[in-house]
Design a protein around this nucleic acid. Structure first.
Length: 526
RNA sequence: GUCCCCGUAGCUCAGUUGGAUAGAGCGUUGCCCUGCGGAGGCAAAGGUCGCAGGUUCGAAUCCUGCCGGGGACGCCA
């Protein structure tokens, strides 16, 4: 719609001008500032706007007028009707598009040493919303979860389960400084006793088999958490452990490119040559590769798979890590510009005004599952998706339980349910009003319809900027416009009943599709 | 000390590659159902957009420097 307008202006200005939303509704649907073009043509902006005005008049526009240095445009009913039919014909396929870009999106990638906590949920929901929106508008997105199933943390997981099992069996246990706490460890320990038998835990030491078993169990839990959050299932699960066999090969490439040197018996990556503060160890004195080595192999593996773009969603606490990974990618001979790292900031959870504290190691973090059980996945998704992912977010779980307007997910759902209720009462469906011609639209009708038809641009905008919250806020706006309209204008029994039903059908379809792309179910009734 | 995020109404936050009189929800106050879902709507009140410069027709938005809040800076992963 916007594109069509831009094309009409292009004929007269030589290029597609910015098409803005006017600040005031009475100015029209679109506003085109012509200051820039007036300057090029050395004319007064006000005069120039008037000139352009005369040139762009056509049947697509009901009215075009110059105000100051702006050209304001009102779209014709015919134009709006055409797009409405498109919405009703295409239904859930509306605003679909095609793109050439292939994207590998890696997100969550939480350590398989415990269930997902609320911070992970934010990244999960953010990633899933991006995936849904991106796929809808045609990006070829592959989703991936990187499983950190190697290293010290996995050992610690095994140790924690081992000691917990000993304690259950009545042995005296000396807990080390660092271990995993929480009920889930005890649950794992109980199960481990059944699987590995009591004898196993009478020994002094445990083997890797216990760690790996516990890791697999945790991974199953994480998969359940992901499901509980209604996240689209991942395409790939990549194991860190399985990558180390390529280390020699990757190391050879790094050496060839002069990325490594030896010092103090360790091998270092010259990451400081690329914006990192200092060089980083990749192989320890004892020959064991560090976590960074694993990540270098992983990104080598990713880039070898040949995607156009790579997106990683990381917790904000990893931001210091970006420079070294990008440096490594450069040393491997790939283009680090293709890797985009999005950070999801901390979530501060409140309950009744009191702050919750989160800690990964301690047992007092907030489990995703608990919150989902408490408020539901939809409400949680909605609240996370109303804010930018890279800013701190604070919310009170009590707010999400409220079934009133203070809870935005109810507000939007209510608008949808209200529309569905109208059609239910009438005993008809959206299709039944598809062929109604929209003519002589009132200002209210136009405003509501026009807003609903913005969805395609909102989707592009939300994805390109990696900001799915733009879609969420759009839906809140649309719901609000609808409520206003409905309060003011009678639908059933009105002389414009058919036209209004068609408009509501469009709004209802858009609300449903928008919610779907956020991974939220649009309710028929509440 | 270095790096990242943030600073907009009492609170939580939007503000679309710089555009017209800066927005929403909550909270406060007052209204609106013989009208289809009042789980709504309308109105009032509430702002030096952290501060100071700069860029230009034009800045909450871009640049620089300060101030304030949060976070990260391992041979942990």
């Amino acid at each position: 719609m916007k594109k069509k307008v831009a094309e009409i202006f292009k004929k007269h200005l030589g290029e597609e001008p910015p098409i803005n939303k006017p600040k005031q509704k009475d100015f029209g649907h679109y506003a085109v500032p012509v200051f820039k073009y007036a300057k090029i043509n050395k004319k007064n902006p006000v005069e120039f706007a008037k000139e352009i005005c005369e040139k762009v008049k056509c049947e697509e526009f009901e009215n075009v007028e110059a105000v100051g240095g702006f050209v304001n445009i009102k779209l014709s009913d015919k134009f709006l009707d055409e797009f409405s039919n498109k919405v009703l014909d295409e239904k859930e396929n509306f605003a679909k598009s095609t793109k050439d870009e292939s994207i590998l999106l890696e997100y969550i990638s939480a350590n398989p040493t415990g269930p997902l906590h609320i911070g992970h949920a934010r990244g999960a929901i953010f990633g899933d919303a991006l995936t849904r929106i991106g796929r809808h508008i045609g990006y070829k997105i592959t989703t991936e979860y990187y499983v950190n199933d190697a290293g010290r943390q996995i050992y610690l997981l095994g140790l924690s389960v081992f000691l917990a099992a000993k304690e259950i069996l009545g042995f005296e246990v000396n807990w080390p400084e660092e271990y995993y706490k929480g009920e889930y460890i005890k649950d794992l320990a109980k199960e481990a006793i059944e699987v590995f038998k009591e004898e196993y835990f009478k020994k002094e030491k445990f083997g890797e088999e216990l760690s790996l078993w516990a890791k697999d169990k945790m991974l199953e839990e994480i998969k359940k958490d992901i499901q509980a959050l209604k996240v689209t299932p991942f395409d790939n699960w990549v194991s860190e452990r399985s990558l180390y066999k390529y280390w020699d090969e990757v190391r050879a490439i790094l050496e060839k490119n002069g990325a490594l040197y030896e010092k103090d018996g360790k091998i270092w990556l010259k990451s400081s040559e690329f914006k990192d503060e200092k060089d980083r160890v990749v192989v320890r004195e004892d020959g064991r590769p560090t976590y960074l080595a694993g990540d270098i192999i992983y990104h080598w593996d990713k880039f070898k798979r040949g995607y156009d773009r790579y997106i990683n969603i990381w917790g904000a606490d990893h931001h210091g890590y970006i420079a070294r990974v990008k440096a490594a990618i450069k040393f491997l001979g790939f283009d680090p510009e293709k890797l985009e790292i999005l950070l999801s900031q901390m979530v501060k959870l409140l309950k009744g005004g009191e702050p919750y504290k989160m800690s990964k190691r301690a047992g007092n973090f907030i489990l995703v599952r608990d919150v989902v059980d408490d408020v539901g996945a939809d409400a949680l998704r909605f609240i996370f998706l109303t804010k930018k992912a890279d800013t701190h977010l604070e919310f009170d779980v009590e707010e999400l339980k409220k079934e009133d307007s203070s809870n935005p997910s109810y507000y939007v759902n209510y608008a949808h349910a209200r529309i569905r209720s109208i059609f239910r009462n009438k005993g008809i469906e959206y299709d039944d009003v598809r062929d109604v011609k929209l003519t002589n639209l009132t200002q209210d009708e136009k405003d509501l319809l026009f807003l609903a038809l913005q969805l395609p641009y909102v989707l592009e905008d939300a994805f390109v900027n990696r900001e799915p919250h733009r879609l969420t806020n759009f839906l809140i706006d649309l719901a609000s416009e609808f409520h206003k309209f409905y309060n003011k204008n009678k639908v059933i029994g009105s002389e414009r009943e058919k036209e209004r039903l068609k408009i509501l059908a469009v709004v209802g379809s858009i609300l449903k599709l928008g919610l779907f792309l956020l991974g939220i179910e649009a309710k028929e009734r509440m």
